[in-house]
Design a protein around this nucleic acid. Sequence first.
RNA 1: GGGCGUUUAGCUCAGUUGGUUAGAGCAUCUGCCUUACAAGCAGAGGGUCUGCGGUUCGAGUCCGUAAACGCCCACCA
Length: 839
Amino acid sequence: MEMETKYNHKSVEEGKYESWVYSGYFECGHTNAKPFTIVIPPPNVTGKLHLGHAWDTTLQDIMIRYKRMKGFDTLWLPGMDHAGIATQAKVDKKLQESGIDPRSMKREEWLKVAWDWKKEYAENIRSQWAKLGLSLDYRKERFTLDEGLSKAVRKVFVDLYNEGLIYRGTRMINWDPVAKTALSNEEVIYKDIEGSFYHIKYPIVGTEEYLEVATTRPETMFGDNAVAVNPEDKRYQKWIGKNVILPIVNREIPIIADPHADPEKGTGAVKITVNHDPNDYEVGKRHNLEGITCINLDGTMNEVALHYEGMDRFECREKLVEELKEKGYLLSIQNITHNVGHSERTGVPVEPMVSKQWFVKMRPLADKVLGNQKDKKNKVHFLPSRFEKIMNHWMEITYDWCISRQLWWGHQIPAWYKDDEIYVGMEAPKEEGWVQDEDVLDTWFSSALWPFSTLGWPDKTKDFEKYYPTSVLVTGYDIIPFWVNRMTFQGLHFTGQRPFEYCYIHGLIRDKLGRKMSKSLGNGVDPMDVIEEYGADSLRYYLATSTAGGTDLRYEEEKVRSTWNFINKIWNASRFVLLNLEDYQEEMNLKDTDKWILTRYEKTVKDVTKYMDKYEFQNVGSILYKFIWEDFCDEYIEMAKFSLNDSTTKQVLLKVLKGILQMLHPFMPFVTDEIYSRLPNSKENIMVSVYPIYEKSYVFESEEEKVTDSIQFISTFRNVKAEHHIGKDYSVVFQNKEDYSFISKRLKLEGHIVDACEKSIYYPVTYKNYSLYLYDEKEESKEDEEKKQKEIESLKSSIQKRETLLSNENFCKKAPEKLVEEEKKKLELEKKKLAELER
RNA sequence: GGGCGUUUAGCUCAGUUGGUUAGAGCAUCUGCCUUACAAGCAGAGGGUCUGCGGUUCGAGUCCGUAAACGCCCACCA
């Protein structure tokens, strides 16, 4: 079938993915070669993939496709994450919208709904992966709640518990009052918000005086245990040990001395609410204060808050301030901007709460990572390397990880209770009367095991033996604390090895103005829409080559369009080659121009391979773009038009085109497959063809230079001709006996060449050994003379600069000889040109 | 407060270990329908590489310093 005259991404991409999957090309285990493994960062089963996913997965697909063509046994393992809080929130919302109160359901009933949800969204995600062309081995697909992965989770929990690295305890934790669950520190996002600083009068018992206490959270005063002042603070020293009366509540609490009170902040006297503030909790421990809880788990006030019982915490704040004002306790209100922790998932301000939860003791695990990172051979290598610091810093300051979540969607904690006894084990105890912990584990607890749990661990499977540790992990820098760090310590602890050799970090996708893409701004771009308009190949190439590693990417549709143009260029160049391929023969009799393109091609193969091995796709992109568009299309194809009957030309065209397609294939799998399949003798599919290998026997330095010089001369000629607006009436006189046949053909000089010309207006065109005079047939203008003078001036100054440089002894002594020689040559050339101009 | 990143053409970005006249896409200007491609071809204009100081024969690149913007961590009564 003939190729269409324009690249049509829809018809090219149609049906290809299905045939790839069917053919089994994506499956690992075809060879005994060295394995190359990537586990996909499992997307959450909460929605559609966004551009960030498209970027992240494209990078991985490029690595996998490259390594596959390089002969590795590649495994790219797909999977998805149950995403505890996020999914539960979505399922709940859906139920509520249909008039059902999710919490009135039985756990089992609710889970059934959640699994249906999961199924639907997993299908959707798979179809998006297909659109992107990802070469995933679906036989190995995993889900974080799979039986196998659950087993790994239980094993890790039980082992850590037995080693004393998991414990249950009452601590102050971050509480999400909407999701009604505990959170880890990483799930709390601090945001600057406008707030008020309320100055409240706390009367001192037995006096007429009072302490002025400033707080941003007056509603917590029902739980106040004390007022703290700094022991060094002269203003308050006399009151230490006395009591104050809590307004409204009318409860006496002591004035204590504690360094936590900062004399510079607020009034220097700070109310201590042991159960509702992390710092106060520490103060409480130091002073043996019994905490008083005044807020319920759903964010409403409890009975301690007297007549505010049942009221939402923020409404209570408002009403309470009014009451304080009425009763004369409110001294002033100051407007301030302060940082308040919000739940990453529900977005509401978190409530510090004292609660019994499960924790992972982090110190020993983190130390193991820090130790391993000192081992250059076995550490996780970050790309770019600076991101290692982020992980190491986290390991240094990390503290115990709260892993229990009061949710239904997740791995239920493998702990059973009977009276005061606790049993932790892989399975429920056999005796009667044991009740399993209702809570589930933090989603990241199972994600942390992903690189090995997906390969069958803790069983000693063949996959685990062969494909672990994985080769590269690809993710955004925002996920380092949540995931990369935790995979690293769990991997080291349980497998004794790093979970991945390299950790390739990319940035975030932003909109054209540099803003994060978000639902609230409405600036999100659906990758499926982009694929519809420009094709997956355009999107992939754009995403992979537009930015250097680790930096953010501003999405620009114009650039995707420009990539489409590039593919259209490749399409048409291929069309040209294929249209001229009849009578194709297997003999090679290389001309200079063939040697020129082959030399450049080999250099391209060498450089591209170098950068592919370093995963520097931006560099690969620019090298390929330049080679394909400029060298292959603009020059070689144009040259080839003069020798299309030559079998060698055809063969060179084919050889270079084939290599181009192969090097582009990891970036644009669909269109390269389409064109490659049309090439003669392409028996195998491009994705399992052998990646081009640098061949020195096709490098011809002197011929390359010779042809490059003529190309430079051609370009100089066109430049002069265009600069002086010379139309079709002109004559040329060659100044020496070089071979101009090739140049004449490219410039279509035939009919313009004369032996000599009488006209006085002429322009010298000189490049290296080539030199001719260009005569314009129209009259000389003043403008032309000015231009000529300008050129003379700039030549003179350039000559001067070079002479100064060359007369510098240090330069001649210290600079590389080659550079000095080149400078000398250039100087001579310029002098020659100047002489021509001034003749 | 600690750390990191960015700052290069009108816009978005490259620029490998210091070495010709700092590159690309888009945009702009000029001339071309030259049959692979007008979503193209051939040319052109546009940058004191954020400022200052230093090392060097030579600095966008290395060192120091200042600024602007952004991010992370910690603190945040």
